[in-house]
Amino acid sequence: MMLLGVSDLVKTFGEGDTATHVLRGLNLTLEKGQMAALLGPSGSGKSTLLTILGTLMQPTSGTHQMLGVDLTIASDAELTQFRNRHIGFVFQFHNLLPDFTALENVIFPTAIREGRETAAARTRGKELLTRMGLAGRINFASTKLSGGQKQRVAVARALMNAPELVLADEPTGNLDRASALQVMELIGQINRDEGTTFLISTHDEKIAATCSRQIVVGDGRVTG
């Protein structure tokens, strides 16, 4: 069952002689429950594609649909709401909120939606952190956690609203091998248990090998 699809996706930065064509008519579909790796050399358009799929940026042209919604015609407020409910993000540098605890970071997407930190959100946040092996770090300040722990908090945060799609941009790029494998194992487990769709951008062939599908991007198009 199709979760999202983009067709003839074009993204150009700048105009005229200085125009940079990052995506050149890219076509891609993702099925629900897939765990896909996005591969390609630097500058191939992987990050731009993730940004567009995450509704943080609009394409120059082409269509972008997810869960049957045409996201290219949605307003900023609609995209913000859609992103909050249906998409989770894991960044290379964890990007936690430094003045908040691990639990506060995890429940942030739900608290934003609810307008406050509910007891139910706290319970789910604790469950997710426990699942990530961070039961003893729930109330730790995010700045006090190690790199691997921070990234696991970031994964828990991405899963907080039980999104259909999690976009991960080099989630293990800043971790040592052991931590990287631990994070990928957790992601794989969630994919299997909850059917969450993952699209993971990576340079690491070993990480890509843990995914059920490999998508290769080159010169702004899907090449394999």
Binding site: G54, L56, D76, A77, T80, Q81, R83, N84, R85, F89, N95, L96, L97, P98, F108, P109, I112, R113, R157, N161
Partner: peptide, 16 residues
Amino acid sequence: RPEIGIMRAMGASRNF
């Protein structure tokens, strides 16, 4: 700015 960016990415509205 980076934190604001994260908040927005996680679904925080401009009004928030």
